[in-house]
């Protein structure tokens, strides 16, 4: 299974465009916001937590349809399904690979973009922490969504429609934890909820995704 993870990471690096695209998208969305709402620092600082979380979520969404679609087209999924690897493990590794190539880099560059939105310096650690805790949930929910739409030609838009409502609790708790943290308020509960969602999705959704893949293969 480690082989699968390494292969996916290697492919992500070699494919060039795909890897950096999410990051660039994150940057662009963040840059667009001041153009839309005006350059006033106080306002930007106030909405920065929400903007950064929404932008990270959209950047994550962008690369979801690649999780299974390519492997489905070239028959890799068929061969993996007949290999000794359990399909549940395959789904989990796919989610992990997606997080390592999307969620983690997004988290790491987020403080840089927070500067652009005039976020108070004390909030950076909360930004890193909430994204670090929350983005794995985005990848694993996305893996489930990608498994659902793997058999649909040009399923990208459908995938977004299915996955976005599933993202809502993660987004709400993540942004709420960050906002409260940035204001110096107590954010234990949303932070724990966020961690709970992440653990729940990592623990359960690979099993559902594997079942969905089996249904799509037959």
């Amino acid at each position: 299974m480690i082989a699968l993870l390494l292969r996916d990471l290697r492919l992500a690096v070699r494919a060039g465009g795909g890897f950096g695209l999410g990051l660039v998208f994150f940057l662009i969305v963040t840059v667009l916001v001041p153009f839309g709402v005006g350059p006033e620092g106080a306002l930007l600082a106030q909405i920065a937590p929400g903007i950064l979380w929404v932008a990270a979520l959209l950047a994550c969404l962008l690369s979801l349809d690649r999780i299974f679609a390519l492997d489905y087209e070239d028959g890799t999924i068929d061969l993996l399904a007949t290999s000794p690897l359990p399909l549940e493990g395959v789904a989990a590794m796919k989610g992990l690979a997606h997080w390592l190539t999307t969620g983690l880099p997004l988290t790491l560059v987020a403080p840089g973009l927070a500067v652009l939105l005039n976020m108070p310096a004390g909030a950076y650690s909360w930004l890193l922490l909430t994204l670090l805790i929350g983005t794995p949930a985005l990848s694993f929910i996305g893996t489930f969504g990608a498994a659902l739409t793997v058999g649909v030609k040009r399923g990208g838009l459908l995938l977004s429609l299915l996955v976005l409502p599933l993202y809502m609790p993660t987004l709400l708790f993540g942004a709420e934890a960050l906002r409260r943290g940035a204001e110096g308020a107590d954010n234990t509960v949303p932070l724990l909820m966020l961690a709970g969602i992440t653990l729940g999705t990592i623990g359960l959704l690979p099993f559902v995704a594997a079942q969905v893949l089996r249904i799509n293969l037959r």
Partner: peptide, 18 residues
């Protein structure tokens, strides 16, 4: 059917979250 079940869980979560 699977989407309906998974969606129900997340819908409940959203209901609590808001």
């Amino acid at each position: 059917s699977i989407l309906c079940i998974v969606g129900s869980v997340f819908a409940l979560l959203s209901r609590y979250a808001v």
